Computed example of a mutant assay.
Amino acid sequence: MLRRLADQFEAASAVHVAESGIERDDDWFLLKLQEEMGELTEAWNRLTGRGRAKGRSLEDIRRDLADETADLLGHLLLFARRNDIDIAAAVERKWRFQPAQTT
């Protein structure tokens, strides 16, 4: 399931970077992950009153939080895929459960 999801993120990312003229080297994957964590933190700060809302509604801020969470997940899976990390095996080893398998 996670490998298939990572492949879907890869396909979407490849289109985006090709359209934008971005070259993805090994560092790009980690730097992009860090960037997305910063954006998630910014959304969280807005939601919890620690950052300026900039005129955005609570609904917009909550949507931003969800969107940035999705970005972070996507870039984490891209990082793992690029580095040939088996996330399911790592979850099983570190968290001691098997991620749900779908066919």
Rank of each mutant, 00 (worst) to 15 (best):
T102G: 14
D7F: 02
G51F: 01
H16F: 05
S20T: 09
T69M: 11
E39M: 04
E42L: 14
A88D: 15
I85A: 00
D26Q: 08
A18M: 10
L73R: 04
L5N: 14
E19W: 07
T103Y: 12
Q34P: 03
L78R: 02
L58N: 14
F29E: 00
D86P: 15
L78I: 03
L77P: 07
Q101R: 09
D86S: 13
P99D: 02
S57F: 09
L2T: 05
R4H: 15
E68W: 02
N83S: 04
A100E: 10
D27L: 13
T69P: 06
W28N: 02
L77M: 06
E23R: 13
H16I: 01
D27G: 11
K94Y: 06
G38C: 04
R52Q: 14
T48Q: 13
R82N: 14
G38P: 04
L5W: 08
R93N: 08
G55I: 09
K94I: 09
Q98T: 08
Q101E: 11
R56C: 06
R62D: 06
L30H: 08
L73M: 08
A80L: 05
E92Q: 07
A12R: 10
D84R: 03
V17E: 08
W95E: 14
M1R: 04
R3A: 06
D84Q: 01
I61F: 09
A14N: 01
L73S: 00
L47Q: 15
S20L: 13
L65T: 11
A12Y: 03
E19C: 10
R46M: 08
A89R: 05
A70I: 05
E39P: 06
R81S: 11
D67A: 12
A18P: 11
A100K: 05
D60G: 08
L76F: 15
F79A: 05
D71A: 02
E92R: 09
R4K: 15
L72N: 09
Q34D: 09
A88E: 15
W44Y: 11
R96A: 04
I61E: 13
R24G: 00
N83G: 04
D84H: 03
Q8A: 13
K54D: 15
R46A: 02
E36G: 06
N45D: 12
E68F: 00
T41D: 11
E68Q: 02
A43F: 04
E10F: 09
A6V: 03
